[in-house]
């Protein structure tokens, strides 16, 4: 009898363990292991590894030249890694062409906004997904974009172009959204709007990988923060642990 009970509890432990590890695996939408990339002699990214979990906002921070945008470009297929693996759920996407990575479910924006200048707002959105005006308007409204669908993109202000680009990235079917410095170079009003947009996306449970320089904002919105320095992960953790970390402060402010 005792033997049987012991076996049952052992079984329970095994199940519990399996359930936990299963949840852990299920949670990671994107996992990057040991990716490296050199440009000439410069190691822009050096054995970088981290994970992005489902329904979280993960922020990549680090000083200029830390390799943040290069990591983004590698994930989205615009740069090929010299080594390492990138898994989107279970699929290895490292080295795949960018359009296939996009089709697999990674949507992104750029530090310098890339809209289709000579196309209307509607056509910009339609490139992301074939859909009707109703859905397009709904997504645009969600990012506080207020111009008409027939406006040519080049006639929009830079801030409005940024909103359009984010709306376009949101419209494309995706599992992971990557935003490269969404609040850089826009006026204070749009900056406020962008913060509100990100907070809303967080409420909706979107999975987001974010590059951002505004520390206060990053600490406020992120579930996890990854600090990159010289192409490596210097520190990774919850925002409140990161702000206290000496090494992080040193990387940013110097010794």
């Amino acid at each position: 009898m005792m033997l049987l009970l012991r076996n049952v509890s052992k079984m329970q432990r095994i199940f519990e363990h399996a359930r936990k590890s299963n949840r852990k695996n299920k949670n990671a939408i994107l996992s990057i292991s040991d990716i490296s990339k050199s440009f000439g002699g410069v190691k822009a990214v050096n054995k970088c590894s981290f994970e992005v979990k489902e329904n979280t906002i993960t922020s990549l921070i680090g000083p200029n030249g830390a390799g943040k945008t290069t990591v983004f470009n590698i994930i989205s297929g615009l740069a090929k890694p010299d080594a390492g693996a990138i898994r989107l759920e279970k699929k290895n996407i490292a080295g795949m062409p960018s359009y296939r990575i996009a089709q697999s479910g990674i949507s992104r924006t750029f530090q310098l906004t890339k809209v289709f200048r000579n196309l209307s707002v509607r056509d910009n959105m339609l490139i992301a997904k074939k859909t009707n005006d109703e859905e397009i308007k709904k997504v645009l409204k969600g990012v506080y974009f207020e111009k008409s669908l027939d406006t040519i993109a080049s006639e929009l202000s830079y801030g409005q172009q940024r909103l359009l680009e984010i709306a376009r990235a949101l419209l494309m079917p995706h599992k992971l959204l990557m935003l490269d410095e969404p609040t850089a170079g826009v006026n204070p009003r749009i900056r406020q709007e962008l913060r509100a947009i990100l907070k809303n996306l967080r409420k909706e449970g979107k999975t987001i990988l974010l590059i951002e320089h505004d520390m206060e904002f990053v600490m406020d919105i992120s579930d996890r923060v990854i600090v990159l320095n010289e192409g490596r992960v210097l520190r990774e953790g919850r925002p409140k642990d990161i702000v206290k970390d000496k090494r992080v402060l040193e990387a940013y402010l110097g010794k």
């Binding site: 989205s76 297929g77 615009l78 062409p97 960018s98 359009y99 296939r100 990575i101 996009a102 089709q103 949507s107 992104r108 750029f110 890339k114 809209v115 289709f116 200048r117 000579n118 196309l119 056509d123 910009n124 490139i127 992301a128 376009r168 494309m172």
Partner: peptide, 13 residues
């Protein structure tokens, strides 16, 4: 779209 920005068209699949 490719004429205006090929990279943007590629990352939209």
């Amino acid at each position: 779209a490719i004429r205006d920005d090929e990279t943007a068209a590629a990352v939209l699949g």
